[in-house]
Amino acid sequence: MKCGVRFCGGCNPQYDRGKAFEEIKNQIKDVDFVNAVEGVPHDLLLVIGGCSSCCAGYEQFETKNGVLKMWNKTHIERICDEINKKKD
Rank of each mutant, 00 (worst) to 15 (best):
M1Q: 01
M1E: 00
K2M: 02
K2W: 00
K2N: 09
G4D: 01
G4K: 03
V5D: 09
R6K: 05
R6W: 03
F7I: 05
C8D: 02
C8F: 03
C8Q: 03
C8N: 02
G9W: 02
G9P: 01
G10R: 07
C11N: 02
N12A: 10
P13W: 01
Y15Q: 03
Y15I: 06
D16W: 00
R17C: 11
R17G: 03
G18Q: 09
G18V: 01
K19Y: 01
K19I: 10
F21C: 05
E22T: 10
E22A: 15
E23G: 03
I24E: 09
I24A: 07
I24L: 09
I24S: 08
K25Q: 14
K25P: 11
K25Y: 07
K25T: 04
N26A: 10
Q27A: 13
Q27E: 15
Q27C: 11
Q27M: 14
I28F: 11
I28D: 14
K29E: 13
K29Q: 14
D30R: 11
D30A: 12
V31W: 12
V31N: 15
V31I: 14
D32W: 11
F33H: 14
F33K: 14
F33P: 12
V34M: 15
N35C: 09
N35W: 07
N35F: 07
V37Y: 03
V37G: 03
V37E: 15
E38Y: 09
G39S: 08
G39I: 02
G39T: 02
V40C: 06
D43Y: 07
L44A: 10
L44D: 06
L44R: 06
L44Q: 04
L45P: 08
L46H: 12
L46N: 11
L46F: 09
V47F: 08
V47T: 15
G49I: 15
G49R: 08
G50C: 13
G50R: 05
G50W: 06
C51F: 07
S52R: 13
S52L: 11
S52E: 12
S52P: 14
C54H: 00
C55Y: 05
C55V: 02
A56E: 10
G57M: 02
Y58E: 07
Y58R: 01
Y58K: 00
E59G: 13
E59C: 04
Q60N: 03
Q60C: 01
Q60M: 09
F61M: 02
E62K: 13
E62I: 07
E62S: 09
N65T: 00
G66M: 05
V67P: 04
V67E: 02
L68W: 10
K69S: 08
K69M: 11
M70G: 11
M70N: 08
M70S: 10
M70W: 10
W71E: 00
W71T: 00
N72S: 14
K73H: 12
K73F: 07
T74S: 11
E77T: 08
E77W: 05
E77M: 08
R78T: 13
C80V: 15
E82L: 15
E82M: 11
E82Q: 15
I83C: 06
N84L: 14
N84G: 14
N84I: 06
K85H: 14
K86E: 15
D88A: 15
